[in-house]
Design a protein around this nucleic acid. Sequence first.
DNA 1: AATCTCACATAAGCTGTACTTATGCATGAT
DNA 2: ATCATGCATAAGTACAGCTTATGTGAGATT
Lengths: 293, 293
Amino acid sequence: MNLPPLAAIRAFEAAARHGSFTKAAEELSMTQAAVSYQIKLLEERIGTALFLRRPRQVTLTEIGARLSPVISEAFDMMRAAIAATRENADGVLTITTIPTFAANWLVPRLGSFQLAQPALAVRLQATREIVDFSRQDADVGIRSGSGRWPGMIAHKIFDADFTPMLNPALAASIGGVKTPADLLKLPIVDPSDPWWQLWFAAAGIPEPDLRGDPRSRYGDQHLEGKAVIAGQGVGILTPAFYETELAQGQLIQPFDIVGTADHFYWLVYPEARRNVPKIRAFRDWLLGQLEER
Amino acid sequence: MNLPPLAAIRAFEAAARHGSFTKAAEELSMTQAAVSYQIKLLEERIGTALFLRRPRQVTLTEIGARLSPVISEAFDMMRAAIAATRENADGVLTITTIPTFAANWLVPRLGSFQLAQPALAVRLQATREIVDFSRQDADVGIRSGSGRWPGMIAHKIFDADFTPMLNPALAASIGGVKTPADLLKLPIVDPSDPWWQLWFAAAGIPEPDLRGDPRSRYGDQHLEGKAVIAGQGVGILTPAFYETELAQGQLIQPFDIVGTADHFYWLVYPEARRNVPKIRAFRDWLLGQLEER
DNA sequence: AATCTCACATAAGCTGTACTTATGCATGAT
DNA sequence: ATCATGCATAAGTACAGCTTATGTGAGATT
């Protein structure tokens, strides 16, 4: 069965609550005539009188009196649900991020964001799919790329640059790493990574002999980093991801030479939503974190 | 907080149930474009995406998924309530009737109506107020009057005529009632009733001596009738109300002379509702009852 | 008793929302 | 490679739903 026009039901609900068409009209910001019209419509639609028109007031008929509380309850439910949705929409920040950035940078720092924004819950989606907010349930994204996405605002986070890193003990085992060529004496973690070629070229070694060890391929900088810290070989990593480990001496960066592919990490979100409070808060926090360096 | 436009909510509810704008549009008998438009409106209104647009289908976002069941439930409530109202409206017949007719004619016969229409419940309102269906919660009315009410259909039930009646034992106590004048030898139940004047005039006694006995005024033919049956005096009553008592000999009607004030009992109901089944059923039953006489 | 006031009904006319039609776009299926 | 499907979007339209203006009836007020 089809519902009667909802505008009519809404008018009925308000009129029943107030016992007055005039007051209902005020509540709904319309005229008394409009309420009268809608209620007449509803009565015709369901085929029975809902109100008794008495001189200075209207009263519910028996049928109207039975209908009214149920309708009110249904409206309350909807009101509550939509209010909850609003809170939910405001109170949960969903971040879609590439896994590497999540593991190496975001997750370790999220605690500070949550301290700063205790009312905001964070939901993380680590995925490599290109970010498309019309088909991903997310508020902000972190992606690498050119930074040009139509309709999107993109803040540069840092360069996806790369340089060799290794465990200091591993370096000591060959008497220290003095020249780029020294690296070739050590196992290479993921020698298939194209970054190696780029970096050695930048370091003046155009065609390095990278002895491939099939076991050492991780496909993810996060895992590669773990292997390097554990001393399993030299890795080519993004320094910004390993600030802590470098500071604590778990890793060393033997050369200042840094490769780059003109590739950046970006914080992105739809331009239309740039003033949504939770998005603002996250952007400000993230940019603040970068300045602290 | 104000609810978003209900048309948008309805579109959302249907789309969420179907997981498809196209199917929702079919259900609501509108185009896919309209559903798309409404949902976009709703999303803007509550400030968050509700659907993820995936190729060949739409999926609810987390927030949409939380909202949807509540909205569906609210709609189900309303649907059920309105369906119940319809049943109620169809299943309860409210009759507003003048008390005399209720007591003397209608109530004793209602059992037969209820046997004939077991699905119909009857609610009786005995009141003397003029019948006005816009301010009385009733489906049909029984009133006396001229039979001309604008916008109303009125079926004549019978003449509100009147003639003296009395208990046969009372008649015997004065050796029988042979002439109208004989009545004056007996106590008159409610001598203030204007019908007496009219009847005696019709019977050829223009100025009868009605010895008023202040105790014997009832103001209601029903009570008056009880007194007459009990032998407390002669009453002036409407024969149609006392068919049973006359047949069984509890009352006698000594003269065929019947007074009338061109006043009838009418069954009335709004013209616009003449085809409502319960009203039809009652009208047909009532007219049938009259023919059986 | 006469007048006033209040609340709703009704008519006429307007306005803007919610629709349709037409088209475009992306993607999964064939 | 082509087709089919499902949603988005733009433009134009129709009519529901509104406002304005006025009428009505019965309490309230004097």
